[in-house]
């Protein structure tokens, strides 16, 4: 993966931080030149990842940055926390699976709308999700 140039780092510990994180993500998406629809996708992905942090880990951070692909630029989103980690990583990535009474659409939805998606989680240590959307 190409080198990520971090443009903004947002601490996430409350639901107002979720709104702030997605606002910063949209601003960067607009700056890179994504269409309005793609910027909405990106903002929504950030919203889901930030909510997971608040809900499961209580606090963490969202980093949004620019990344250069082979032929086009992109936006990268990193959501990381030092929370409890995800013991059932495979099941969490299945649509409809939720431990919180939600729809279970969060992580699978983010994976579907972004071009690249990676999740690393260690029980007791935390979770890091990295996702990239290329500007085609």
């Amino acid at each position: 993966m190409s080198k990520i140039k971090v443009e903004a780092c947002v601490s996430v510990a409350s639901d107002t931080d979720i709104v702030n994180a997605r606002r910063q993500g949209r601003a960067l998406a607009d700056h890179i030149g994504f269409s309005s629809s793609e910027a909405t996708l990106i903002a929504t992905a950030i919203s889901e990842l930030a909510r997971n942090i608040v809900h499961y880990a209580r606090d963490g951070e969202i980093l949004v940055g620019m990344v250069n692909g082979d032929s086009c630029p992109g936006i990268s989103i990193t959501a990381r926390d030092s929370g409890p980690g995800i013991p059932e990583l495979k099941r969490v990535m299945l649509e409809g699976f939720s431990t919180s009474g939600g729809m279970g659409l969060g992580l699978p939805g983010v994976r579907r709308i972004m071009d690249e998606f990676n999740i690393e989680s260690q029980v007791g240590k935390g979770t890091t999700v990295t996702a990239i959307k290329w500007k085609r």
Binding site: S37, L41, T44, M103, G109, I113
Partner: peptide
């Protein structure tokens, strides 16, 4: 909004 409708469909919401 159109962009919101687009995102909801893409995410499966």
């Amino acid at each position: 909004q159109p962009e919101v409708a687009f995102t909801m469909v893409q995410m499966g919401i």
